[in-house]
Amino acid sequence: MSPSHYKFPVNLEGTVMSKKTTHVMYDRDKGDWYVKDGGNSRASRRGFDTQRDAQDWGRNHSRNVGSELLTHRKDNNRIRSADSHGNDPCPPKDKA
């Protein structure tokens, strides 16, 4: 089945992707953590001293908007973890 036949957005490998994303990232220039919604040019909120504080706020925000929370590493900004909040296209088998 081609990716265009999926109900949800699909990447090139054919893996289903979440529609909305919220990112917890570190800004080296300003020295703080911030939360940003995918596709937006500006942060939803910034000025967090720790990654945990940014994650806590971002998790609550992600639940409110029904997005996937992606936490990035401080050193290279690669995704460290992902939590789905909202319409999960691939729920755990025990929850289905």
Rank of each mutant, 00 (worst) to 15 (best):
M1P: 08
M1N: 07
M1W: 09
S2I: 13
S2H: 13
S2Y: 10
S2T: 10
P3N: 13
S4C: 10
S4Q: 07
H5K: 04
H5L: 10
H5Y: 13
Y6K: 06
Y6E: 07
K7A: 05
K7I: 08
F8T: 10
P9T: 00
P9C: 04
V10Y: 02
V10W: 00
N11F: 00
N11W: 00
N11A: 11
N11Y: 00
L12C: 12
E13R: 03
E13C: 03
G14K: 02
T15P: 01
V16K: 01
V16T: 08
M17I: 06
M17R: 09
M17T: 04
S18C: 07
S18N: 11
S18P: 06
K19E: 01
K19W: 00
K20P: 05
K20T: 04
T21A: 04
T21G: 14
T22N: 04
T22S: 03
T22F: 06
Y26N: 15
Y26G: 07
Y26D: 07
D27N: 13
R28P: 09
R28D: 15
R28V: 14
K30P: 02
K30R: 15
G31Y: 11
D32T: 15
D32P: 12
W33L: 00
W33F: 02
Y34E: 08
V35C: 04
K36H: 10
K36F: 05
K36A: 03
K36W: 12
G39T: 04
G39K: 11
N40M: 14
N40L: 09
S41R: 12
S41K: 15
S41Y: 11
R42F: 09
A43N: 03
A43F: 03
A43Y: 09
A43I: 01
S44C: 07
S44H: 14
R45F: 13
R46N: 12
R46F: 13
F48G: 10
F48S: 12
F48N: 05
D49Y: 05
D49T: 08
D49N: 14
T50S: 14
T50V: 08
T50I: 01
R52N: 12
D53V: 01
D53Q: 14
Q55R: 11
Q55Y: 11
D56Q: 11
R59T: 14
R59D: 12
R59G: 07
H61C: 03
H61R: 15
H61N: 02
H61V: 09
S62Q: 00
S62F: 02
R63V: 13
N64T: 09
V65H: 08
G66H: 01
S67E: 10
S67I: 08
E68M: 14
E68V: 02
L69N: 00
L70K: 15
L70A: 05
L70Q: 14
R73K: 07
R73M: 12
D75E: 13
D75G: 13
N76F: 08
N77C: 08
N77Q: 09
N77R: 12
R78C: 13
I79E: 11
R80E: 10
S81Y: 05
S81K: 10
S81M: 02
A82K: 12
H85P: 05
N87S: 15
D88F: 04
D88P: 03
P89G: 02
C90G: 03
P91W: 01
P91S: 02
P91R: 03
P91F: 02
P91Y: 06
P91A: 01
P92G: 03
K93S: 08
D94A: 15
K95F: 05
K95Q: 12
A96T: 08
A96H: 14
